[in-house]
Structures are given as structure tokens and as C-alpha cells.
Design a protein around this nucleic acid. Structure first.
Length: 256
DNA sequence: ATGCCTCAGCTCCTGAGA
């Protein structure tokens, strides 16, 4: 079984690339973030023709998430039960016996800002919910754009970017607290090239100079950990003429 | 330096992203 996550930064702009990518990478599940469109604009038919059923949770201008799957998704839940949120950031469902959660975590803008406080409370809300989900669904994958780096290995310039957004101790504490529920960073379960990132700034030739951050993650539960056979960042779409600033991350699970 | 890109929108500038 293969699962992937990709922040597309506008599905309107990126739809042709997503369809091309699915043709080249026929994953079983694809979580999308930053659709930046309402549900009535969601191209369900295009995905259907590509062999995917789709669940979407959109919003005008910002945010918006979706789950595509080869087999139909059941028990779909939108956003975090128990955490009131104006924004469309989470979609979860059961696919082939695995509880899949796709999330677009808040950016946070700047430590100390209102948006940072929102990010902190959102992370706490997510953690409280995922804790109960893990009891109900031992086979669980939490993936998406986390907007948090785990440590300096995820940052192109750890000194220059120390304590800036995505790299603060408060954010990393929240990420470790999620891990402590019984989750694992699938990417680090396997050997990886140094300076592996999932996002690069559009400005200043960020991608060409590999000035990036690893902020898109796939976390797997204890029960799934022994089944992880691969986890990789696919930089190919970032080389497109008009790319998303994020690259897809792909997880491979055996005997599922 | 608060811009450098990119995207959406009450669109020819502004807010937000990361």
C-alpha cells in the first residue's frame, strides 16, 4: 500500500500536475492540502476518471484539504471533533482498514502573534483528538503539511533560522508530544540523504540552492511501524515550470 | 530590507503563505 501527501498551493492551478503525478505514481491514497477552493469547484470528476474517489473539505481563498483513494473512503470526518475551527484544515477517513488523517497545520506566522497562539491551541486540539483515535484505530497514519521542523536536520540554515517560525522550541515540543502518543516519523525510519527537504521558498532560487525545510510529514502508529518499507520525498514536481512550493511525500507499507 | 515569489480576490494592490 502506498500513501502520499502533497500541499499543492491551489488545486485550480495544480490539477494537471496532480493528475500527471498520479499517473506516474499510482498511490492508493493521496492527501492534498491548500486546495484554496470551495467544494463546488472541486474537480471530483477528473479524479474519478483517473481512478480515484475523492473526499474534499474546501474553503474559499485559503486552506482546504482532500483525500483521494483508489478504494472508497468510509467514516469521513472533517476537521477536529472537539476543536471549533473556522478553517478547513483536516479530513480523515478509513481506507483499506487504515485510519488516514490528512492535515494542513496552521502556519503560525511569527512566534508571539495571535496566529502563533492559534497554532498552539490547534496542535493541542489535534493531539487530544488523535489520542482517542489511536485507541479506536491502532492502524493510523497522520500526514500532511505540519508547518513544523523536527530538528536542525530539517532546516537548510539552522543558525540563521533558529527560533523562527517552523523552528521554534514551542512548535517542536508540540510535534514531539504528538509523537509521544505512539507515532513515528516514517521518513526517519529509513536512511535518507542529508539536506532532504519538502518545501523551498519561491524566492531567491530556494529550490535550486536547496534552501528548504522538511515540514511535510507522514507519521505512522506503533502497529504500522513494522510495515514501513519506504518513505521518500519526490522532488520531481518541484522541477515543473509552475510548481507548488511543496513536494509530495510518499509512504510505502508492506502486506497492506 | 519586510522585499525577494506565488496565489486569490469586491483584482492593477493587498494579505498570506513559510
Amino acid at each position: 500500500m502506498k500513501l502520499a501527501t502533497w500541499n499543492v498551493n491551489s488545486l485550480t492551478v495544480r490539477l494537471p500536475q496532480v493528475l500527471d503525478w498520479l499517473t506516474a505514481n499510482p498511490v492508493d491514497v493521496l492527501a492534498l492540502q491548500e486546495l484554496k477552493m470551495t467544494d463546488d469547484k472541486f474537480p471530483a470528476q477528473a479524479f474519478q476518471q483517473a481512478g480515484y474517489s475523492a473526499q474534499c473539505f474546501g474553503q474559499k481563498t485559503y486552506n482546504g484539504v482532500a483525500l483521494l483513494s483508489r478504494t472508497p473512503a468510509v467514516n469521513v470526518v472533517k476537521n477536529i471533533p472537539g476543536f471549533a475551527d473556522e478553517m478547513a484544515r483536516v479530513i480523515s477517513a478509513e481506507v483499506a482498514g487504515v485510519r488516514v488523517i490528512g492535515g494542513y497545520f496552521p502556519n503560525g506566522q511569527e512566534p508571539g502573534s495571535d496566529k502563533f497562539e492559534y497554532k498552539m491551541s490547534w496542535l493541542k486540539g489535534l493531539r487530544d483528538w488523535v489520542r482517542t483515535e489511536l485507541v479506536k484505530h491502532p492502524k493510523l497514519v497522520l500526514m500532511g503539511d505540519f508547518n513544523i521542523t523536527f530538528d536542525d536536520a530539517d532546516v537548510w540554515d539552522p543558525i540563521g533560522l533558529k527560533d523562527t517560525i517552523h523552528c521554534t522550541e514551542e512548535e517542536r515540543y508540540q510535534l514531539r508530544a504528538l509523537i509521544a502518543l505512539g507515532l513515528h516519523d516514517a521518513f526517519r525510519l529509513l536512511p535518507q540523504a542529508a539536506k532532504s527537504y519538502s518545501w523551498w521558498d519561491y524566492r531567491d532560487f530556494g529550490f535550486r540552492r536547496n534552501h528548504g525545510l522538511r515540514i511535510d510529514h507522514i507519521l505512522v502508529s506503533d502497529a504500522l511501524k513494522p510495515l514501513v518499507t519506504g518513505c521518500a520525498i519526490d522532488k520531481t514536481p518541484r522541477k515543473n515550470e509552475r510548481p507548488s512550493d511543496h513536494a509530495p511525500v510518499v509512504l510505502e507499507l508492506e502486506s497492506l
